[in-house]
Structures are given as structure tokens and as C-alpha cells.
Amino acid sequence: MKFRFKLGTALALAALLPVAANGAAMVAPDGVQIKDGTVAGSLTGAAGDPAAGKKWFVGRKLGNCLACHANSDTASEPFHGQVGPALDGVAARYSEDEMRAILVNSKQIFGDATIMPAFYSIMTDKRVRKEFEGKTILTAQQVEDVIAYLKTLKE
């Protein structure tokens, strides 16, 4: 009886832990460590996909990075924002781990007054609309995809 109960708990816990495609455990939003402006290592344990990342970058429902940032590499998309700096050559300005920290929680890098949303943090007590409650703007996989794409913006 006791043994079965324990096994059941273990199984339930395993089901709760998000698991990346390659089997490595994902870092949950509240478990991300930002140290010296960096988040060391992939949130999923694997590298992202730059082609997918480009989609999230321009997609209005996802990153919508283009709403605020111009980017010559996506010149075919209409309407680039002017709120943040252009992201041309961003990979030459920041390391991968720095970019990850910016995406996870921009406020810890640019200060509390920044307009740039935190893409991998959960907002509580902010009147978040029901369909977005308890969710991050991007998933861990999507954050890694965007980073993989940003790494291609070398000049």
C-alpha cells in the first residue's frame, strides 16, 4: 500500500515537470537565475531553431519584436517599430547568455522603467487576461529559437 502510494506520487511529479524534446528538464520561469546580466545555458538544454525564431520575431501574436525594433534582416516585413534600438548586429553587441537574460526579464537588465516586456516571466496581480494567466509570452523553446535567430544578426 505504502509502496504504491509513493510510486504514484513519483509518477505525478514526473508528469508535472516540463520536459524538453530531447528529454532534458526545462528551466521553469521562476527557476531562471539571472547573474551578472546573463542566464547561463539553454532553458531547454538544447539549441534553438533560427528559422522558427525568425517567425516568432515577426509574429504579432508571439514575440512581436518587430513592433518595437527595426531589423534589416526582416526588411520584407512592413512596419518596423522605432521604440527600441535596431537589432542589426545585435549578436556582436551581446553574448548568447546576455541575450537570454534580456529576453527572460528585460527589467533586470535595463531597469524597471523599460517598456520591453519580460518574455519568460509570469505576471501575478496584473489583471492578466484569463487566456494568458499563469503563462509566459514565449515558451522556453521559443526563447531559445529567438536567441538562435538573434545570433545570426552579426552585422
Binding site: 512596419f79 518596423h80 517599430g81 522605432q82 521604440v83 522603467a113 517598456i115 516586456p117 519580460a118 505576471m123 496584473k126 489583471r127 492578466v128 487576461r129 494568458f132 503563462k135 509570452i137
Partner: peptide, 18 residues
């Protein structure tokens, strides 16, 4: 909201920007 923005973030800090 999930984007964690105030009216002022857009209409005070960045008016005149696209």
C-alpha cells in the same frame, strides 16, 4: 497585463515613435 505595460509607457515615454 501579461505585457506588464502602463499607459505612460507608450503615451508618455514614446509618443512620436512608431
Amino acid at each position: 497585463g501579461q505585457l506588464d505595460l502602463a499607459c505612460a509607457n507608450c503615451h508618455q515615454d514614446y509618443y512620436g515613435k512608431r
